[in-house]
Amino acid sequence: MCSPPKAVIFDLDGTLVQTRESSWKVFSPINSRHQLGIDTAEQFYELFAHNFFGSLRRACGDPATADVVTAEFMQALNEHYSPTMVPGLNDVVTAMVPHSKLAVLSSNTTAVVRRILRQNRLEYCFAHVFGGDVEPDKTIGIARFLADAATGSGRMCRAYYDEPSDSASDVGGETGPRDVVLITDTVGDVEAAVSAGIRAVGVAWGMHTEEQLIAAGAEFVAIWPQELLAYLYSDAEPACGGSCATRHADPPSASVREASRSAAEVRHDRRRRTAAKFAATSAASAVTTSALATPALAVSARALNRVPPPVTARVDDRLLAAIGRTMR
């Protein structure tokens, strides 16, 4: 079992949101207009077996048609693509926030990612977003994330970023490839993660099956969203070995290892304190909501400015408690 990840990269389509029917409805008119021969949803889904944009360009034949089709598809996604969130993943994402930097790596456009995250009030839970219009090659996107992730800054579902301490040990060398997990529903993404030298965890509710994802190199496939928390944040040995050992990570020097350990301890303590405050705020809001069960009392109390309005969206207490137990 590996140690809890310091950074988690989510794929969007099919992982965070339910995408199969929504994406096919957007693509189908484009296929008909250009007579690409991708006439069924199943044929469209096969494009995700490897890098989607590469598969789409090969299906188009000549480069000129590929450029036009890609541009039309991206524009159609911006205008018409509106998938729903996978049930349960809102709570899973917010439960991960105190313990890992979060990012989104998607073939979709940045505008679509922004719209979906804002609609689900998750936009400030992610520190980085790489859309297909920013970086269409996910292997390169992962490399860019790794190059920038060593700053150690994440987000706590608030607009500002964590500010690292002034300690020299808190800057650089903190996040290595084996500390990063890509969560995805496609074989192509798993292959990109393996190629980049990071861990890959699959989800069974998207494009590809559990068997396909495992065969491609995923170390685990979640059947339910809550399994991601149990698998990634359960107690683990300090050394990460076995199925999650990466293929391309060079062994660090003793000085780098010591700096990494020091940086991890500083970051871990900072996030533990933040998580405790987060839990206290959630508990206080629950008490407030319970005490103001009568609508008339709630209205009168707010009118007198004695209490804030009840919180309508907060982390599931059971998920928060489960995560808390893993951090002791």
Rank of each mutant, 00 (worst) to 15 (best):
M1W: 01
P4L: 03
P5E: 04
D11E: 10
G14W: 05
T15P: 06
T15V: 04
V17D: 03
Q18Y: 11
T19G: 14
S22L: 07
W24N: 09
S28P: 00
P29L: 10
R33T: 06
L36W: 04
Q43R: 09
Q43C: 04
Q43N: 10
Y45H: 14
A49S: 14
H50P: 00
F52V: 08
F52Q: 09
F53S: 04
L56Y: 06
R58K: 14
C60M: 06
G61N: 09
A66V: 10
D67N: 12
V68K: 13
A71F: 08
M74C: 03
N78Y: 08
N78K: 09
Y81R: 05
V86M: 12
P87E: 11
G88K: 08
N90H: 15
D91E: 14
D91N: 14
A95E: 08
V97P: 02
K101M: 06
A103K: 00
L105I: 05
S106H: 05
T110L: 13
V113H: 00
R114Q: 13
R114E: 14
R114D: 15
L117R: 00
L117C: 01
Q119R: 15
N120D: 13
L122N: 02
Y124Q: 09
P136I: 04
D137F: 07
T139A: 11
T139E: 14
I140N: 03
I140M: 05
G141W: 02
D148Y: 00
A149V: 01
A159E: 11
Y160R: 15
E163H: 07
S169D: 12
V171N: 02
E174T: 03
G176P: 01
G176W: 03
V180Y: 01
L182P: 00
L182Y: 01
I183E: 08
I198Y: 02
A200T: 00
G206E: 09
G206P: 10
H208L: 04
T209W: 05
E211I: 07
E219L: 03
A222H: 06
I223Y: 03
I223Q: 13
L229Q: 09
A230V: 11
A230W: 00
Y231C: 11
Y231T: 09
A236E: 11
A239I: 11
C240V: 07
C240R: 08
S243M: 12
T246I: 02
R247Q: 14
H248A: 12
D250S: 15
P251H: 12
P251E: 14
P252L: 13
A254I: 07
S255T: 12
R257C: 12
R257G: 04
A263Y: 02
A264S: 14
E265C: 10
A275F: 11
A276L: 13
K277S: 03
F278E: 10
S282C: 13
L292Q: 10
L292S: 07
A293K: 08
A298I: 01
A298R: 15
A298Q: 15
A298P: 02
A301N: 05
L304A: 15
N305L: 12
N305E: 11
N305R: 15
V311M: 09
V311L: 10
D316Y: 02
R318E: 13
R318W: 04
A322R: 15
G324N: 13
R328N: 12
